[in-house]
Design a protein around this nucleic acid. Structure first.
Length: 275
DNA sequence: ATGGTGGCCTGGACGC
DNA sequence: TGCGTCCAGGCCACCA
């Protein structure tokens, strides 16, 4: 399911496939994907050219000429892929962007959870969804001091705190289990109870793990593929997620699965003890 | 302001 | 076989 590494991989693929293409026609088959008026969405995009494709957290951002941006979130199973005009419309295709060169960018989403929205590029940071995002998980953006200060005020469990995207962006259910395993932190630990050295280890693990997963082209568990419809390979590097009953690669204890904040949560009860 | 919960959706796995 | 139930989980609206 697309977390930051998967979205980043999609972004890189899309840049190769659709950059500088001009939209001739937009077809909306399932309007609920679009936030705002469908007709305005269509009319605004027709005639525009994709000048750049960026990313903020798990949001893809298409920048067009005329100062228009499309902010797109894949949520659980959203996908973009390219087809030729006239090709059969596959099941679960919801939005079609047809280009002047006869190719089409199609948005496909089995569960219809994804959302997209048009915004003026200059006002993109006024979007409620983007406004509340924390720093990108990089050495330059993500400071230990800021992270520590925010954690010290969080009276909830570390796992839902990290999923919230306000402390740092990019973690979803898979990578959050991974970074907590890496850091030997129990997912149910109350955030403000974390010790200084644990915070430093967690901070560094978040940066390292997400960047490693980007290099691997993301994690393919259920359905994720990039814009070229290829799978990622990071699933082979997972130490906690999906390894229920298998031995912990650090201590040999059995990885267990519990529910934390309504999410399936994988951890090693021996390495990741509650303090 | 903060933390917790249900809803959005579909398909696949599972039990009987 | 076919039906019902549960599970997958990112985000947001809504509640206390």
């Amino acid at each position: 399911m697309p977390e930051l590494p998967e979205v980043e991989t999609v972004r890189q693929g899309l840049r190769q496939l659709v950059l500088n293409k001009k939209i001739r026609k937009v077809t909306v088959l399932y309007p609920k994907i679009i936030n705002g008026d469908t007709n305005i969405f269509i009319e605004t995009l027709e005639g525009l050219t994709i000048k750049e494709i960026g990313r903020r957290g798990k949001y893809l951002i298409f920048n067009f000429d005329d100062g228009i941006s499309l902010v797109s979130h894949l949520r659980m199973e959203g996908k973009y892929f390219v087809r030729q005009t006239g090709d059969e419309i596959e099941k679960h295709t919801h939005i079609i962007f047809e280009f002047t060169d006869g190719k089409q960018l199609r948005y496909n989403d089995v569960r219809k959870f994804g959302r997209m929205e048009l915004v003026k590029t200059d006002n993109i940071n006024d979007l409620k969804s983007l406004k509340k995002l924390g720093p990108e998980p990089t050495k330059t953006d993500f400071s230990i001091e800021d992270f520590t200060n925010k954690l010290k005020k969080k009276n909830k469990m570390i796992k839902p705190a990290l999923l919230d995207q306000s402390l740092v962006v990019g973690l979803g259910n898979i990578y959050v289990d991974e970074v907590l395993w890496m850091s030997k932190i129990n997912p149910q630990t109350i955030a403000k109870h974390l010790e200084k050295n644990e915070i430093i280890i967690l901070h560094d693990a978040i940066i390292a793990e997400l960047s490693k997963a980007v290099k691997a082209g993301g994690t393919t568990i259920r359905s994720y593929t990039n814009a070229f419809e290829n799978s990622g390979t990071f699933q082979f590097d997972l130490n906690a997620y999906g390894r229920t009953g298998e031995p912990c690669r650090r201590c040999g204890n059995s990885i267990e699965k519990i529910v934390v904040a309504q999410r399936g949560t994988h951890y090693c009860p021996n390495c990741q003890k509650v303090k």
